[in-house]
Measured scan of single mutants.
Amino acid sequence: RLHIEVEGTELMKKLVEEAKRRNLNVRAKVENGKWIIEID
């Protein structure tokens, strides 16, 4: 499991799109103003 903290929506969208393209499980949520992304 990969755990990433990202500031900025554009970067988050790119990460999520790339993960979906590779058929990975992606969860994204906002915590303290940062995107928290978990990829399995």
Rank of each mutant, 00 (worst) to 15 (best):
E31T: 04
V26T: 01
R21Q: 09
K34D: 07
E38P: 00
D40N: 09
R21V: 06
I36G: 01
K13S: 07
E7L: 14
K29M: 11
N23D: 07
E7F: 15
H3A: 12
I36R: 01
I4Q: 06
E10N: 08
T9G: 10
G8K: 12
I36S: 01
A19R: 00
M12Q: 02
T9Q: 10
D40T: 13
N23Y: 05
H3K: 13
E18P: 00
E10M: 04
L24D: 02
G8N: 15
R21N: 09
K34L: 05
E31C: 13
K20V: 12
R1P: 11
V26W: 05
E7M: 12
E31V: 14
I37G: 01
N23S: 09
V6L: 06
L2G: 06
I37H: 00
D40G: 10
T9W: 15
E5I: 15
G8R: 08
T9A: 13
I4T: 06
E38M: 09
A19V: 06
N23M: 03
K14M: 12
A19K: 01
G33A: 00
L15G: 00
K13P: 02
E38H: 07
N23V: 01
K29T: 14
E7D: 11
A19Y: 10
K14P: 01
E31S: 10
E18V: 09
E5T: 11
I4A: 05
N25P: 11
R21A: 12
R22V: 09
L24M: 06
K14R: 11
L11E: 14
L15T: 03
I37P: 02
H3F: 13
R27M: 10
H3S: 11
V26M: 03
N32L: 03
E31R: 08
I36A: 01
T9S: 11
E17F: 05
A19N: 01
T9V: 13
L15E: 01
I4F: 13
E31W: 01
N32E: 08
R21M: 11
K29D: 05
L24E: 03
M12C: 15
L24V: 07
I39P: 00
V6A: 07
V16F: 10
I36W: 04
K13T: 10
I39A: 01
I36T: 04
L2P: 06
E38I: 14
E31F: 02
K13M: 13
L2T: 09
V16W: 09
L15H: 02
E31L: 09
M12P: 02
E17V: 05
A19S: 04
N23L: 05
L24Q: 08
A28P: 01
N25D: 11
E7N: 11
N25I: 12
V30Y: 15
H3Q: 13
K20L: 14
E18F: 07
A19C: 12
E18H: 07
N32I: 01
V26Q: 00
I37E: 01
V16K: 04
L11Q: 13
V30H: 15
E7G: 09
E18I: 10
G33H: 02
V26A: 04
L11A: 14
T9D: 14
R22Q: 12
K34Y: 10
G8Y: 12
E38T: 09
G8H: 12
V6Q: 04
I39E: 02
R22E: 07
G33R: 00
R1L: 13
V30R: 15
I39G: 01
L15S: 00
N25E: 11
R27H: 14
E10T: 04
E38L: 07
K13H: 11
H3T: 15
M12H: 01
K34T: 05
G8V: 11
K13A: 09
A19D: 00
R27P: 00
E18D: 11
R22A: 12
K34F: 10
K29S: 12
E7H: 13
V30K: 15
D40Y: 14
E17R: 09
T9F: 15
V6E: 03
V6M: 07
E38K: 05
K13W: 05
R21S: 10
N23P: 00
H3N: 11
E38S: 08
L11T: 10
E10H: 08
V16G: 02
K29I: 12
K14I: 13
G33L: 03
N32W: 00
E5S: 11
R27W: 05
N25T: 10
R27Q: 13
E31Y: 03
V30G: 06
K34R: 13
K14D: 05
K20Y: 04
R21D: 06
H3W: 12
E18A: 12
K14Q: 12
H3L: 14
I4K: 05
I37F: 01
L2N: 07
V30D: 05
E38R: 03
L24F: 03
K34E: 08
E5K: 08
N23E: 06
V30L: 15
L15P: 00
L11Y: 06
K29W: 15
R21I: 09
K14A: 13
V26D: 01
K14L: 13
I37L: 04
V6H: 04
V16M: 11
L2S: 06
R22S: 07
R21G: 07
L15F: 09
L11S: 06
I37A: 00
I39N: 00
V26K: 00
E18G: 06
K20S: 06
L11D: 09
W35D: 02
G33F: 00
L2Y: 07
K29H: 15
M12I: 10
E18M: 13
L15K: 00
N32V: 00
I4Y: 11
E17N: 09
E10D: 13
D40W: 15
M12L: 10
R21F: 04
L2V: 13
L24I: 09
L15D: 01
E18R: 06
E5Q: 10
K29Q: 08
E7A: 11
I39V: 07
M12G: 04
G33Y: 01
V6Y: 07
N25G: 09
H3I: 15
I37Q: 01
W35A: 03
K34A: 05
D40P: 03
E10Q: 06
V16Y: 08
V30N: 14
L2D: 07
V16A: 03
K20E: 09
V16T: 03
A28W: 07
K29V: 12
R22G: 05
W35R: 02
I4V: 08
M12S: 04
V16H: 03
E10L: 06
L11P: 04
V6W: 07
V30C: 15
R1V: 14
R27L: 11
N25H: 13
E17T: 06
V16N: 02
G33I: 00
R1C: 15
A28H: 03
E5P: 05
E10W: 03
E17Y: 05
E7R: 11
E38N: 04
G8Q: 11
K34H: 13
N23W: 03
H3D: 08
E38Q: 05
R1G: 11
R1K: 12
L15I: 15
L11H: 11
R21L: 10
G8I: 13
A19G: 04
E10I: 04
E17L: 06
V30S: 13
E7K: 09
R1A: 11
L24Y: 01
K34G: 06
K14F: 10
V6G: 09
V26I: 07
V16L: 12
E10S: 06
L15M: 08
D40V: 12
D40A: 09
M12E: 02
N23Q: 06
L24S: 03
T9I: 14
V30W: 15
K14N: 06
A19W: 04
R21Y: 03
V6F: 08
T9E: 15
K20Q: 09
A19L: 14
I36M: 03
R22I: 08
I36N: 00
R27F: 05
H3P: 09
I37M: 01
A28V: 15
V16P: 00
N32A: 02
K29A: 09
E31Q: 09
I39Y: 04
L2I: 14
E10V: 04
T9K: 10
I4D: 04
L24N: 03
I37T: 02
L15Y: 07
R27S: 15
K14V: 10
K20T: 10
K20F: 08
I37R: 00
N23H: 12
K29L: 08
L24W: 03
E7I: 14
V30T: 10
L2F: 09
